[in-house]
Design a protein around this nucleic acid. Structure first.
Lengths: 190, 190
DNA sequence: TAAAAAACTTGAACTACTTCAAGAAATCGG
DNA sequence: CCGATTTCTTGAAGTAGTTCAAGTTTTTTA
C-alpha cells in the first residue's frame, strides 16, 4: 500500500507512470509495534519514515530521566532527524511508534538513487521540508507567546481527535509543561 | 556580488556555466538599512532573502507589546516565512534588518521560473530546508531541556562573536527569557 | 560633538509553573 | 477477562523565572 505516499506526492508534483513505477519498486511497507524505536540517541539516522497509518513521535530523555516529545507524526507525515541524516552525526533523539503503525522506511542510499532517476522528487521533498520548517517556526511562536493553559486549549481546539489518541503525559511534554499540570488544567484547577 | 550565493549553492550542487549565468541574470543585491522591515505581520510573504552581509531577524510582537525574536539570520542564510510563502496566508512574523545588510531578494515568481529552468536548484533548496528544519528541532530541544542560564552559556560558547553583535534584549528574547534576567545572568547575580 | 534615543542594570515583589509522593483509574496483552 | 503495567489525579511546598520602575550607560544621528 504505497497509495498514501503516491497521493501525497501528487499534491506537489506530477509523476508519469514510469516514474511512479520506479518509485514504487523501491518502497516497502513496514509495521512497527507500539513503543518500538526506529532511532535511538547516539545512532546515525539514515532513514526517512513516511507514516501511512498510526502515530510516531520524536523525543528526548532529559537530565532528570523524563521523556520530552519534540514532534509527533501522523498519517501522511515524514519523520526523521534531518540533522543527523545530512551531517552524519549521532542523533540527539529517539523516534518511536506511539501506536502500532505502518510506515515506509526510505534508506538514504535508496533515496539518493531515486532522486537521481526521478528529479521531480527533489521538488516534492523541498516543499515538504519548507512547510515543515514553517510549521516548526509557528510551534516556537506558540511556545513563546502562550501560557501553558493557552497552549493546551489552542492545541485541543485545532486537534481534538489527536488529543484523545496519545497519552496525556506525551502531549504535556510536547506542549512543554508537566503531566501533573496538564491534569490540573483539564480539571479546571488552575 | 552574487558570489556568496553561488558559493553556497556550490556546496550542495554543481551548476554548469549556462545555469550559473541564467541564475545570476535573475539576481539583484539590495541594501537594507538597520531596523528596516522586509516583512510585516499580516502581509503575505512572497520573497526569500539570502543574506550576503549583515544580520536579519524574524520576530513577533507578543500580547504585552514586547518583541520576541524567533530566528536570526547571518551571512549565507536564507530567511523567510515559508508557511506564508507556501500557503498564501498572512504572516505572523516581522522580518527586519538588525544591522545594515546586503541581501538577495528572490521573488516567488522569479524563483519558480528559475527552478523550472535549473531543476538542480530544487535539490539545493531541499537540502537547505531540511537542514534548517533539523536546526529548528535542535533549537526546540535546547529550549525544552536547558535552564535560562544554561541556554545563555551554551549559546555564548557556540557563538561568542555573534553575542557581541546583537542587542542583548534581542538575544534574551531569542533564548526565551527577559532582558532583565539576561542582565543578571551576565552579572552573575542569579 | 551634543542631544536624543536605545540599550542595559538593579532590587523587590510576585507568579506560573515544577516537583514529590501516593493513591486511583484505565488500558494492554497473554 | 484478569493481572500487570501504564497512565492520570491531587495537594502541598518550592523555585526559576517575570514584572515593574527608575536610574545609568552606550550608541546613534543630526
Amino acid at each position: 500500500m504505497h497509495k498514501a505516499l503516491l497521493q501525497h506526492i501528487a499534491k506537489f508534483v506530477t509523476l508519469d507512470p514510469a516514474e511512479t513505477e520506479l518509485l514504487e519498486s523501491c518502497l516497502t511497507v513496514f509495521t512497527i509495534k507500539r513503543k518500538e524505536l526506529v532511532l535511538q540517541e547516539g545512532q546515525i539516522c539514515n532513514t526517512l519514515y513516511f507514516i501511512i497509518k498510526g502515530c510516531m513521535r520524536q523525543y528526548i530523555i532529559n537530565s532528570k530521566g523524563t521523556e520530552q516529545t519534540l514532534q509527533f507524526g501522523i498519517e501522511n507525515w515524514w519523520i526523521t532527524d534531518y540533522l543527523s541524516y545530512h551531517n552524519h552525526i549521532s542523533s540527539h533523539f529517539y523516534i518511536q511508534a506511539v501506536e502500532k503503525s505502518e510506515v515506509i522506511a526510505l534508506e538514504k542510499t535508496t533515496l539518493e538513487a531515486i532522486l537521481l532517476q526521478v528529479p521531480k522528487l527533489e521538488r516534492y521533498f523541498r516543499i515538504v521540508a519548507q512547510k515543515s520548517f514553517g510549521a516548526a517556526q509557528m510551534r516556537i511562536k506558540f511556545l513563546f507567546t502562550m501560557s501553558a493553559e493557552e497552549r493546551y486549549h489552542h492545541f485541543n481546539n485545532l486537534n481534538p481527535e489527536f488529543v484523545q489518541r496519545v497519552p496525556q503525559y506525551m502531549l504535556a511534554s510536547y506542549l512543554d509543561f508537566s503531566a501533573e499540570f496538564m491534569s490540573k488544567i483539564r480539571a479546571g484547577k488552575v
